[in-house]
Design a protein around this nucleic acid. Structure first.
Length: 926
RNA sequence: GGGCGGAUAGCUCAGUUGGGAGAGCGCUGCCCUUACAAGGCAGAGGCCGCAGGUUCGAGCCCUGUUCCGCCUACCA
């Protein structure tokens, strides 16, 4: 007994109506707040379902949403909404970053505009000022994220400087210090003379410039007639040279190792050393000056040879008269350059060298210059006491985690990038001489280190000698263990912003406390980020996460492309090439922008965004909108869900295809192929569902309450509801609006189950029959077009086939063909076809003819047919050649051979029909 | 200097293990066919950067090369 389940869907009473044109603003305003008010995005650690966690890459608290954020957060939202619908216990944790130097610069600029030098304001007042600015501007980006539809659990909003996270930072610092992984030392660091702070290696941008190479002669002390010629791009640093290096195996120079040379413009003699690491015999003259206080290589060479360091410049990159006097610089030279900026001192030194006959050659030289990533000022290597993290012990497990697959980087190509960087990693300079940030939890006893008194509040850490050993503690100490006194000054430096960011995946979940949240949601599932912060952030989260939790902070790292402008340049305000996502959202709708970004998120490739594309997807949204209107107009009637096998073939076909798309979308999302998932939806909804299904069922629906109409009405609503769920992660606002309007069960689409494929919807036969309809209809339409035969004019289609199954399929679909072709269909033996005014067309193994009424343009048709014939003949010839080749027969796979044969058969049949059409047309023409 | 990626239709790009060159936008023609003109139907347009190689067969694999982009780097 066949069990039939019948039930009638009734339309709900709804106040919602769909206007003729899709107006996104109204729709977005309605649902964005609705979702939040009802708490649909809230996560609870005790919920059922396998946890799925994403922590947001926290945007700068005072920032504004740019297109990169839009992409980044759209992708995260797609993942989270999808997983939420799948029934996972989802948490998307939102938050903002205090962004040390960036924010400090913003406030400093504001103050300068008001005519207040920041130094005059003082540290505490300055910080207060930043907090009040945060109060005022900090919500901007959060509101913008909400507008984008970001389904974060907004009740869990965190900030890198809030109480809990600040505590986590101090905890992490103290623990690392206890283990000897944080140290303070005199090192050469990248120094920005404008920001007056240290920068980490990756905060320095390199820019190629055309510089000058100066060749300078250094005479030997015991043989002034012999000189070593050294080449340098920074002649002024010669005043701080403490040795000259040559390669120990260089026969030109190695006899001089151990001798001394007289340093030009000074009264100093400096040694010649052999150093195979520093010196490349092939480059320049083969002799290198060593200036340990002003060059990173020289610093290391200085360590190897125990050379003194002479710092020539102040922290503002001015020539320091005190130190160069001590370095024995000739009084005349000294006076001429004292207190000058380094760039002004250089030509004076060059002139002096030239005057005294030391300058032997000047030539152009391509070189790179390091600049501050924030303010673009030329960075100076600067010798000062700073805090560092000893990175090697942290890097090794972080390398292993990726190598062993505990962390998956997607696309995989970036793994090598990551591993390469991690293997060559150097100690991380974490101290910054600014005010805004987490202040380093280290205190100096003013009794033990009277120098500490001299600290200029705020930016004076370089005045505290590196041998001073501070008390590192989560809270201010009360008594000095050495002298029993109780006067302390806290280290004025703050931590690199990325230090707190490195803790983000677990500090936001309550660490160091062992919370239920931490237990449930950590390690997080997926980190979605751009390549630009792979080293800044991702690598450090992995190192620090492994260190403190013993677990990798996330399972997958999905790295998306950078959004660039039409010329492929990085978008930036200064270049004026930004596409503002908020403007586009207002113009085309948030869903259109989201869908555009998802569609373009191909892996490994930068996105060049153009406005036309957004418009195209706006049209897609409008298409769906109008499909919804059509469905609502036609849903108003009796409908019955019956077993798939009992439904009309068009319903079987559309369900079979929907099944396929459902599988495909899910599969593509599993692989993070947002572009392909979006493409599947676009193609199916527009070009199968709307173009074919809705057109095919129009006559069926008009047929009142016939069984076919009832079933189709039910199928229509069923599939369309299914599609809204499938599309929801990509276009949340539009789908919610539509879903709320069509028959549905539940409060919101947000919490509906994500569709899964149904085996019984699979129907190969229906798909095959559809293909026949599609081909015939397209062929007849093409026939109409090439004859300039108006669509309104009627015609008769004649069809036959050798295969009885094909005839049966033709018969089954004749009404659909008649409807879509606007004509009548006759199935008859070819002998019974009329001989006059008939155009023969080929559709695979079917033979089709169309008879027309009235006048037609035959010449055009003849030309077109000739062209088609040529194309087909070419293809047939190629296939024929391939099949005739003995090598092909011997080596190609059997199915490939079979396919080629079948295709050639079809081509041959088509060609014969073409030739018959051509003859017919010629007959008609005369 | 090292590494990575790209070069396919006028534009922006897709092309999964090698077997009939695709999409969107733009363009041309026809059509307001009662969901949609932000639409429908049909169409034009491509030595897949260049040169070799492997293969019965290459947009796809290999080598070389040109141009563009990105990352990285201590060549004084």
């Amino acid at each position: 007994m066949l069990k039939l389940t019948y039930f009638v869907i009734s339309l709900p009473m709804t106040s919602l109506q769909l206007n003729k044109t899709y107006e996104p603003q109204a729709v977005e305003a309605r649902w964005g707040q609705y979702w939040i008010d009802r708490g649909y995005f809230g996560a609870a650690a005790d919920s059922t379902g396998q946890p799925y966690t994403i922590v947001i890459p926290p945007p700068n608290v005072t920032g504004s949403l740019h297109i990169g954020h839009a992409l980044n957060n759209t992708l995260q939202d797609i993942l989270i909404r999808w997983r939420r619908m799948q029934g996972r216990n989802t948490l998307w944790l939102p938050g903002t970053d205090h962004a040390g130097i960036a924010t400090q610069n913003v406030i400093e600029r504001q103050l300068l505009e008001e005519g207040i030098p920041p130094a005059q304001l003082g540290r505490d007042a300055f910080i207060e000022r930043v907090w009040s600015w945060k109060q005022q501007a900090g919500n901007t980006i959060l509101e913008q994220l909400k507008r984008l539809g970001a389904s974060c659990d907004w009740s869990r909003l965190r900030f890198t400087m809030d109480k809990g996270l600040s505590e986590a930072v101090r905890e992490a610092f103290v623990r690392l210090h206890q283990e000897g992984l944080i140290y303070r030392g005199d090192r050469l660091i990248n120094w920005c003379p404008r920001c007056l702070t240290a920068l980490s290696d990756i905060e320095v941008e390199h820019e190629p410039i055309r510089g000058t190479m100066y060749h300078i002669s250094y005479p030997l002390t015991d043989d002034p007639c012999t000189s070593l010629i050294i080449a340098t791009t920074r002649p002024e640093t010669l005043l701080g040279d403490t040795a000259v290096a040559v390669h120990p195996e260089d026969p030109r120079y190695n006899q001089h190792i151990g001798k001394f040379i007289k340093l030009p413009l000074t009264n100093r003699a400096i040694p010649i050393v052999g150093d195979s690491i520093l010196v490349d015999r092939e480059f320049g003259t083969g002799a290198v000056k060593i200036t340990p206080a002003h060059d990173f290589n020289d610093f290391e060479a200085g360590e190897r040879h125990q050379l003194p360091r002479i710092a020539l410049l102040t922290h503002q990159a001015l020539v320091n008269p005190d130190t160069i006097r001590d370095a024995g610089v000739e009084p005349g030279v000294l006076d001429s350059i004292a207190n000058l900026p380094v760039t002004k001192a250089r030509p004076i030194i060059v002139e002096a060298l030239k005057h005294q006959g030391f300058l032997t050659k000047v030539e152009d030289h391509q070189m790179v210059l390091g600049k501050c990533y924030r303010c673009k000022t030329v960075v100076e290597p600067f010798l000062s006491p700073q805090w560092f993290i000893k990175i090697q012990p942290l890097a090794d497990p972080a390398i292993a985690a990726v190598e062993q697959g505990h962390i998956r980087i997607i696309p995989e190509e970036w793994s090598n990038n990551y591993l390469g960087w991690m293997r060559g990693i150097k100690d991380w300079c974490i101290s910054r001489q600014i005010w805004w940030g987490h202040r380093i939890p280290a205190w100096y006893c003013t009794t033990c280190y009277p120098e500490a008194h001299k600290i200029l509040e705020g930016r004076g850490s370089r005045l505290i000698p590196s041998h001073a050993s501070p008390i590192v503690s989560k809270t201010a100490p009360t008594t000095c263990a050495t002298c029993r006194q109780g006067q302390f000054i806290q280290d004025p430096d703050v931590l690199d912003t990325w230090f707190s960011s490195a803790l983000w995946p677990f500090s936001t979940l309550g660490w160091p406390a062992n919370t239920k949240d931490l237990e449930t949601y950590y390690p997080t599932s997926t980190l979605v980020t751009g390549l630009d912060i792979l080293f800044f952030w991702v690598a450090r989260m992995i190192m620090i996460g492994l260190k403190f939790t013993g677990k990798p902070p996330f399972r997958d790292v999905y790295i998306h492309a950078l959004v660039r402008d039409a010329e492929g340049k990085k978008m930036s305000k200064s270049k004026g090439n930004v596409i503002d996502p908020l403007t586009k959202m207002s113009q085309y709708g948030t869903d259109a922008l989201r869908f555009t970004l998802a569609s373009m998120a191909s892996p490994g490739r930068d996105i060049k965004l153009s406005e036309d594309q957004i418009e195209g997807y706006r049209n897609f949204a409008n298409k769906i909108w109008n499909a919804a209107r059509f469905i609502l107009m036609n849903a108003d009637g009796p409908s019955e869900i019956c077993p798939v096998s009992d439904r009309p073939f068009v319903d079987q076909w559309v369900l079979s295809r929907l099944n396929h798309v459902t599988n495909a979308v899910t599969g593509r999302l599993e692989e993070y192929r947002f572009d392909q998932a979006a493409g599947q939806l676009y193609q199916y909804i527009w070009h199968e569902y709307c173009d074919w299904y809705l057109e095919l069922i129009k006559p069926v629906l008009q047929n009142g309450d016939s069984p076919a109409a009832r079933s189709t009405r039910a199928t229509l609503l069923q599939t369309f509801e299914h599609l809204q769920r499938l599309l929801h992660p990509f276009m949340p606002f539009l789908t919610e609006e539509i879903w709320q309007t069509i028959p549905h069960q539940g409060e919101s689409l947000v919490r509906q189950p994500f569709p899964v494929a149904t085996q019984e919807w699979e129907n190969a036969k229906a798909e095959q029959t559809f293909t026949i309809i599609e081909q015939i209809v397209t062929t007849v339409r093409t026939g109409r077009a090439l004859l300039d035969y108006a669509p309104s004019k009627s015609l008769t289609i004649w069809g036959t086939a050798k295969d009885p199954d094909a005839i049966a399929q033709l018969n089954e679909s004749r009404h659909h063909i008649a409807h879509l072709c606007r004509g009548t269909v006759s199935i008859a033996d070819q002998n019974d076809w009329p001989t006059d005014r008939i155009l023969h067309l080929a559709v695979g193994s079917l033979m089709i003819g169309m008879t027309l009424e009235g006048e037609v343009d035959l010449n055009k048709a003849l030309a077109r047919i000739k062209k088609h014939t040529q194309t087909k003949q070419k293809e047939a010839a190629r296939l024929h050649g391939r099949l005739a080749s003995p090598n092909f027969a011997a080596k190609a796979a059997p199915d490939v051979i079979q396919e080629s044969k079948e295709r050639l058969d079809i081509l041959t049949a088509e060609l014969s029909l073409f030739s018959s059409s051509e003859q017919q047309l010629q007959k008609m023409a005369f």
